[in-house]
Amino acid sequence: MRLWLIIPVLMAAVLGARAPYAQQVNFVIDATLPVRETELPYQLNLNLTAVAPTRIGVGALLDLREMQKIVPEKLADNAIIDNCGLQVRLDDISFRAKDDAIDLDGEVTVTIFECSRTSERDFQRGQEKNAILANMSTEATVELRDNCAYFKLIDLTLTAPEAQREQVLEDDTLESVKELMLAAVDLVLNETPLCPELPSELASLDPKYEKGGPREIGEGGLGVFLDGSVDVSPSTILDILTVLQQQELIPGRP
Rank of each mutant, 00 (worst) to 15 (best):
P251A: 05
E73I: 09
L158V: 04
L222R: 08
T242K: 13
Q87F: 01
S233W: 01
E201L: 15
N190Y: 11
V185W: 15
T38G: 03
V51Y: 05
R125K: 06
L40T: 10
A183R: 14
A12W: 00
L86I: 06
R253L: 14
F123Y: 12
Q167D: 12
S229M: 11
E73F: 06
R65E: 00
G59F: 11
L222I: 13
L104W: 03
I6E: 13
G252L: 10
S229R: 13
A134P: 02
S94E: 10
D99V: 13
I6F: 05
P41Q: 02
L180F: 12
L5K: 14
I250F: 07
A134Y: 02
E39S: 15
K208T: 15
Y150L: 07
A149C: 01
F123T: 09
N78I: 08
E107R: 15
G59A: 11
F151M: 09
E73H: 10
D77E: 09
L153Y: 07
Q164D: 14
Q246P: 02
L33R: 15
S233V: 01
Y209H: 09
A101F: 13
C115H: 09
E216W: 03
D155Y: 08
E139C: 04
G218P: 10
L15V: 10
L61G: 02
L62R: 00
E179N: 14
P20H: 00
P34C: 07
R55S: 06
R18Y: 02
F27D: 01
I217L: 15
E120H: 05
V14Q: 02
